[in-house]
């Protein structure tokens, strides 16, 4: 089939029919979807930042009580960790929202690679910016409390298990994202400006 026949075949295919909706229904649906989209983003941010605020408040209450220096330091570390987590998530998300929906396909692929790379960096370092400071703060706060050694050992074991779980859970995500990033990069590298043209590459006009 040559180029002309191919294009003719494409042109003459019967039209597709989308799910029927009147113009007004379509416009209303878009507004509804837009509101839902905004609500979802707002709710997700509020949930994550809200969780940080609650943990920070609980640690702050600990600071107000009569406690040992170790417990106070632990609580301060927890509060600072919550601040770092909330800031990290906010900065990462703000950066993603600025993308224009009408960029070129190459820019879009590059943006997706950047997005996946950003997610990868977050997941690969989750122990350092998320789990370790939070758990270390909680461990210090617990160790500074008066109480039996058995109770402290149990709490330490729970904290270590929580840290290990966060690491294990995120490692699953890392493996999937690494595969996805490799595929995105392969696709981007198929763009001629990145690849070296071979002698077989000729302009169009040949039969398909």
């Amino acid at each position: 089939m040559n180029d002309h026949e191919l294009k003719q075949l494409w042109r003459e295919q019967p039209p597709f029919s989308p799910a029927h909706a009147t113009d007004q229904e379509l416009a209303d649906r878009m507004k509804k979807m837009m509101r839902r989209f905004d609500r979802t983003i707002l709710w997700r941010d509020a949930r994550e930042i809200g969780a940080c605020v609650i943990v920070a408040l609980l640690a702050g209450l600990g600071l107000l009580r009569q406690a040992s220096m170790m417990t106070r330091i632990g609580n301060i570390i927890v509060i600072l960790s919550c601040l770092v987590i909330a800031l990290t998530l906010t900065v990462v998300r703000r950066g993603r929202r600025g993308l224009s929906p009408d960029r070129s396909l190459r820019d879009s692929l590059q943006a997706e690679i950047a997005k996946v790379s950003g997610q990868l960096r977050l997941l690969q370092t989750v122990v350092w910016w998320y789990a370790a400071p939070l758990l270390a703060g909680a461990a210090l706060a617990e160790l500074g409390h008066q109480g039996g050694i058995i109770g402290k050992i149990v709490v330490m074991l729970i904290l270590v298990a929580a840290g290990w779980f966060v690491h294990w859970f995120n490692q699953h995500g890392v493996n999937g994202l690494l595969r996805l990033k490799a595929e995105l990069e392969r696709t981007l590298n198929s763009v001629p400006e990145f690849a070296i043209p071979t002698q077989d590459d000729k302009p169009e006009g040949e039969a398909v």
Binding site: S104, R106, D107, V191, P203, E206
Partner: peptide, 16 residues
């Protein structure tokens, strides 16, 4: 696509 017009022909040839 975000590529130069010169490359469109080359890439189209490969794709076809």
């Amino acid at each position: 696509m975000g590529i130069s017009a010169n490359h469109v022909g080359v890439m189209l040839h490969r794709a076809k």
